[in-house]
Amino acid sequence: MSELVTGEAVALELRPAKLPSRALAVLLDLVVAFVAYMVVTVGVVAATASLDEAAQTALSIALFVLLLVGGPIAVETLSHGRSLGKMACGLRVVRDDGGPIRFRHALVRGLIGVIEILMTLGVVAVIASLVSARGRRLGDVFAGTLVVRERVPLARTGFVPPPPPWLAGRFSELDLSAVPDGLWLAVRQYLTRMQQLDPQVSWSMAERLSADVAARTGAPAPQGVPPAAYLAAVLQERRAREARRAFGNGVAGSADGRRAAEGRAAGVYGPPVMPPAAAPTPPAPAAYGGGAAQTEGQHGDQVEGERSATGFVPPA
């Protein structure tokens, strides 16, 4: 099984698609493409009967490239990895890190697919899928993609805890372009499994991953923020950007769902790690006992109010 996360910001444990289901999806796509090609060709030939034979041949080649090569590329790009055959079989093409594919991924898969599927009748694709541990054909290897099953039992779904509410919006201006896909996948898998690990092992892994992310973004975790919470906040920001890029701004969940997720996050990450407290100030003279006690009480109420508002203890 390969634990991945889809581009819709939903953490799932997805299985790589098996060869029979992939072959059936490709067969359905080819049938649809050939039917469309034949219908369009008949219409174009009837409309261009006055042209010479060379022009008709060039037009037929152009239609072949457009419908049987460009068509699947366009469909996979616009549907984020779900062609008609894959939708029928419950499959989807994702990146190696689980994110949605883009035009360059679909272009590489489509161009190499002409050689390993159309020109060799699928023989090369079948051999490559049988050799690959995750059933990837050559197009997937060069494009950095993977075909996975979308229809999995609910019991197999994973849960990546969202960041604590006191970290909301802290990393909206962060540059995440230098973080490689492999590091994102490692962060997602750690956040999914961190509650199953020994606390010391979990903490050391979080520190190492947060240091790697900070080295590539140039923004280390703020003081007092646990490394796991920092990773969750940065990951959520990245997934939010992916979702906005793929589906627009209408991808936010309901208010009740967000509040429930924040409640679960508070139980997972706990309160922020406070910096070491400053040395206590010496007590005031006895002559100022009453006033000092009142001032200390007011200061304590102010500190407590600021802590509840921001999650951090203000400096002394």
Rank of each mutant, 00 (worst) to 15 (best):
A214D: 00
S202A: 15
V65W: 09
A125H: 01
L154D: 13
A36N: 11
D29I: 06
L185P: 06
T48M: 07
V273N: 03
L209W: 02
A128F: 12
A25K: 01
Q223N: 10
E237W: 00
R241T: 07
P226G: 12
A143N: 02
L30R: 12
V213L: 09
Q302V: 11
L235V: 05
T157W: 10
M38D: 12
G182I: 03
G300T: 04
V179F: 00
V75I: 14
L51G: 08
Q200E: 14
G113K: 01
V160G: 01
I101M: 07
A49Q: 13
F171G: 00
V114N: 01
F103C: 04
W166F: 14
L111A: 05
L28K: 00
P72Y: 02
A260F: 07
V5W: 03
L118T: 13
A252M: 07
Q195I: 08
R92G: 04
P282T: 03
F247C: 10
R134W: 05
R22C: 10
E262T: 06
D52S: 12
G122A: 09
G98L: 05
L154Y: 07
L167K: 04
P275C: 05
P222R: 07
A279H: 05
T77W: 08
T157L: 15
E8Y: 08
M194S: 10
A266V: 10
G300M: 09
V69M: 05
